[in-house]
Design a protein around this nucleic acid. Structure first.
Lengths: 356, 356
DNA sequence: GTGAAAGCGCTAACAC
DNA sequence: GTGTTAGCGCTTTCAC
């Protein structure tokens, strides 16, 4: 089984076989181009015979559109992102766009891979859990390449972003804990200066403050398992054990639950309530049944792609910040408040009467 | 904030600014090309000033090498695949290749997206948990595009593949169960005709058979959560409850554990031992502590990429089937045999004396 | 070592 | 509706 690789079939060869010009072939494969059904048939027949497929690379070169979206993800352990990736790939596929995947550094910086992305002349960029330096934002803007930050935002407003309402949802988490009459509050954060962490922490602390609660222990898990384990240890081994912990995302929250149960023998939710953020796969598994804010992946992806498409088609970049509401899904990792939890389509949600 | 998108900088513009020919610019960006350091400096300076980046699309067009590898994944819920994807993307990046991601259909068929892949003139294809029809295999072979099946194989031998030693590992699982004196055996399979499922089931049943055990209940979870739940129900609600279950992958095994514990109140491992395959993230979490065959993702990815590179560089396709050994990692979802479990670098492995 | 020139496979005016 | 032609931005001979 040995064979030299052959050059692929070109439109020229198809044209020859079909007895038409090369441009007729091109037109036969361009939706909406002016070509007679008869010619088109001849061309398609010849193409089929030769196994011809238009060369997307060549097309890209003179349309100046690659139909490729560069996507950077740096946090695969958090199931939320694979889910985003899958949804995004499917969505782009329906629009006949394609997804060039890059893996970001651990620290969530893209500068190193930015060159690579730009060399492929992508039509747009999605950064999931990754930030873009100001320089690069400017460069994209100058180059006319739309960028969407996914689950992250930046202050400059030079790039678009799609997020859930982190701060409001975090406030609701605080309200939930308070309604269930918890006493000792804690927060396990992610990378301290990530926009999402900042918003969630701020909302949580602010709402607690409004209830006169200012003694909140804050530790940091850095979105990373080992660090989260350390954070959880410090939380449980010194001082009074908290009975209400909001963890900045589910991935860390599950780790916190495991440490609480298996290292410290704590009972959830009897002595300790835990809430996460993302509502991703394992959170719904009965072993965890984690109360969590559900980020609507499909809506967020749709919004991101729509933003991208609008900017690509118009050739104009007008950054927009989109906020999609998340919902607090109540499961069994938390003590329940007497009021405010409602049942809807088989899941329990927290919706207190008074809207903030 | 509104700006028209501008055409990107071209090598022609850089040449003009540097006062050299356009080909000098090209050579400056081609490693190993014959160019004097002086000229190169001038060019790089001009390039920096203009923010020039070589256009990979244009380059691809006349080198007939896209430096893009098409990757198809269809099973994101199984953490194993995101992990593979991340590892693969990092590996390709170090070789200056790029990853065009496609999502396969639920049924693991790629025919629909095959056109898309081929249009981008990828230099190679990785199919993870996805099969390729014979027609398409032939087409790739004819087009000189190397294909590697990852965690799947096919009989025709027209495509390369990388797998762990499914059958041998499955035999070892049987030996493990038998050594711990289990009585009632079961197997929860994946998609019935997937190569991996066939090999695992065959190895497991064959080894049990050699021990005189032929009464093994076989149900099917289809690699899919809902179906796995149904399979587990049927396993636990009719006939005597098995005390030894091998589940074809971890993703399904965790579901089986949850159903056993939370729907049927069964105790693991006291009344029931469960073993999975993949040893992916959640399996190591203390809530599950699933005994599982560890697939060495890094080695498997390295092997896949190496295969690809060899074929790309030689321009010759010689399919190879690579088998990477997996290791049975023993945790707490199983009763332990008296002998054969050894400790190594902090993990417990099963390595019976007699090698089969 | 360097520039001129051809051409990779295609799209998009432009005439007819 | 169709063929002719001129590029898209680059790499790669080929002379010099």
């Amino acid at each position: 089984m040995k064979r030299k690789s052959f050059a692929a079939v070109t439109s020229q060869q198809v044209a020859q076989l079909a007895g038409v010009s090369q441009s007729a072939v091109s037109r036969s494969f361009t939706p909406g181009a002016s070509i007679s059904p008869a010619t088109r048939e001849k061309v398609l027949k010849a193409a089929r015979e030769l196994g011809y497929r238009p060369n997307a690379i060549a097309r890209s070169l003179n349309t100046a559109r690659s139909r490729i979206i560069g996507v950077v993800v740096s946090y695969f352990e958090n199931q939320f992102y694979p889910q985003v990736l899958e949804t995004l790939a499917r969505k782009l596929d329906t629009l006949n766009y394609h997804l060039l995947l890059f893996v970001g550094d651990r620290d969530g910086n893209v500068d190193r891979i930015f060159d690579q992305i730009m060399q492929y002349r992508v039509d747009g960029i999605v950064l999931a859990s990754v930030s873009l330096s100001l320089d690069l934002s400017e460069e994209c803007l100058a180059a006319g390449i739309p960028v969407v930050l996914f689950n992250r935002s930046e202050e400059s407003g030079m790039a678009s972003s799609v997020n859930s309402n982190n701060e409001a949802a975090a406030r609701q988490i605080a309200e939930f804990f308070v309604a269930a009459e918890h006493q000792r509050y804690a927060y396990v954060g992610g990378v301290a200066d990530s926009s999402v962490n900042i918003a969630r922490q701020r909302g949580y602390l602010a709402a607690l403050h409004e209830h006169g609660i200012d003694d909140v222990r804050v530790v940091n898990g850095d979105y990373e398992t080992q660090q989260t384990i350390r954070a959880a240890y410090s939380l449980f081994s010194t001082g009074p054990v908290p009975d209400a912990i909001f963890v900045a995302n589910d991935h860390m929250a599950l780790t916190v639950m495991d440490v609480a149960r298996y290292e410290f023998g704590l009972h959830i939710p009897e002595t300790l309530s835990v809430i996460g953020y993302d509502d991703t796969g394992p959170s719904g598994w009965p072993s965890y049944a984690l109360t969590s804010v559900s980020q609507p992946v499909q809506e967020m992806v749709d919004a991101a792609v729509e933003l991208l498409m609008k900017q690509i088609e118009s050739g104009t970049i007008e950054p927009e910040q989109i906020i999609v509401p998340g919902i607090l899904v109540v499961r069994h990792s938390t003590r329940r408040p007497r009021n405010g939890v409602i049942e809807k389509e088989g899941v329990s949600l927290f919706q207190p009467q008074e809207v903030k």
